[in-house]
Write a protein that binds this DNA or RNA. Structure first.
Length: 129
RNA sequence: CUACAAACCCGAGCUAUCGUUCUCCCGGCUUAGCCGGGGGGAAGGAAAGUCCGGACAGCGCAGAGCAACCUACCGGUUAAGCGCCGGCCUCUUGUGAAAACAAGGGAGAGAAAGUGCCACAGAAAAUAACUACCCCAAGCAAUUGGGGAAAAGGUGAAAAUGUGAGGUAAAAGCUCACGGUAAUCUGCAGUAAUGCCGGUUAUGGGUAAACCUUGGGUGCUGUAAUGCCACGUAUAGGAUUGUUUGAGGGCGGCUCGCCCGAGAUCCAGGGUAGGCAGCAAGAUCACGUUAGUAAUAACGGGGCCAGAUAAAUGAUAGUUUAGAAACAGAAUCCGGCUUAUGAGGUUUGUGGUUUU
RNA sequence: GGACCGGUAGCUCAGCUGGAUAGAGCACAAACCUUCUAAGUUUGGGGUCAUUGGUUCGAAUCCAAUCCGGUUCA
């Protein structure tokens, strides 16, 4: 697959079953204000790394705010995902990842990009464990 | 010219790079799909609150009674409405000597069917007699008893239709005159609410956003409805109950009636949580003409304008308006109402200032 | 997406149905008791009854709209 910055339907984590498993059995760490859930998957998927994003409706009542945070999360993942994807692919693994925003204020794009880079780096370190 | 208020309009444009979703065309492949290239569409005026009303679907194309809920001046408008338009009555404010005019508000049927409630104060708060007044009786007298009488009495949100005259023992709509209010009848104007003139009757405090009465209306549930396809498990276990002496059901609260009827309820455990239709051409949008005071309707030719499913419009940089736009994100679809909202524009009203 | 409930003192609640004093417990403050503290006793302060409007003589209570918080169905 070509190394692009895409983030289309295939790369999204959509299955309700997979999400339940991820939250129940997956591991997690947080790089404030983002909490990362991740889990290696055994069954084959149509893309090696599937990613979802989310915000709590409790912290952000307005739908526009939630939409914006999700967009920013997606954007920062999309632009920084390359090395993780390459690593996972060379190791012949499959992964499900979920980014949950746990802050209580609207983030700046620059800050969120930094945090996302840090989170992805840590994911790469933890990939074998 | 400026400040404030109200109503309406508008709700951002362009360029570059990287991306999302739907769709059409072309090409390729290992052809229910995927990949590559190209074209096109892609949130709102409120998408919101869920406060009303429909469309559509299912429930037996739901039968009777009660209950419950909604609604309430009149006419028009609409698919429909607690919306909108026009009118009537009424209240408040302003101007005015008044008539009236202007602006704004009105859950605007019935208190003369019945029941309830009306604190404190006050004689009394609704079949009014405490004081004072008048008459009769008793008593030397103070006074006591019986009756008449709503004309006077601090109060109170509210006190029994106002003024004047007659009348009387004292009084009283008891009678009369001029009024007020309510009901009703004739006539006139108006489709009607209602208004005006005249007559009759009454003079009964308020409260129906207290119960209630009257007129009108409502079957219920909602697109996660509903129809279908695919996949999977346990045709297993325990308890209670029932099979014509009828469990249970027919998605509304109760009763009745009708129909179906061999399973029903609970416990523990197991499985699935995918796809297609519904689902995007319609009470549609903008324009024009005609009818109408208006809401709105009819006609004409023209346009096609989101369709996702952990859920699509973004990020970065520059630039323009005007200041790195405010409120804010479709989820079955429409018509309203309500609320939030940046800058600018238009109109109307009020105040101030300057010039003539 | 639909349905429903609530908002009263710093906290937990009553009062609302049925209209006229805003109250209870805990907490807080002061005094008494004690060598001191706790406990106990007595006293006190503290409320735009979520907001706005309406009905009424009078509204925490009735009605309407709005804001905020919560529950529930599939």
């Amino acid at each position: 697959m070509a190394a692009t910055f895409s983030y289309n339907k295939k790369e999204k984590l959509k299955s309700r079953k997979a999400l339940e498993q991820l939250f129940a059995k997956g591991k997690s760490f947080s790089v404030f204000p983002v909490k990362v859930f991740y889990m290696p998957m055994s069954e084959t998927m149509d893309h090696p790394v599937k990613v979802g994003v989310g915000v709590s409706a409790r912290n952000f009542k307005k739908a526009t705010d939630r939409n914006r945070i999700k967009r920013l999360l997606r954007e920062s993942y999309r632009l920084n995902k390359l090395s993780l994807n390459a690593l996972v692919e060379t190791k012949q693994k499959q992964m499900a990842v979920f980014f949950l925003y746990i802050g209580k204020e609207l983030p700046e794009y620059v800050l969120l990009t930094e945090k996302m880079q840090a989170a992805l780096k840590r994911l790469e370190e933890n990939i074998d464990r």
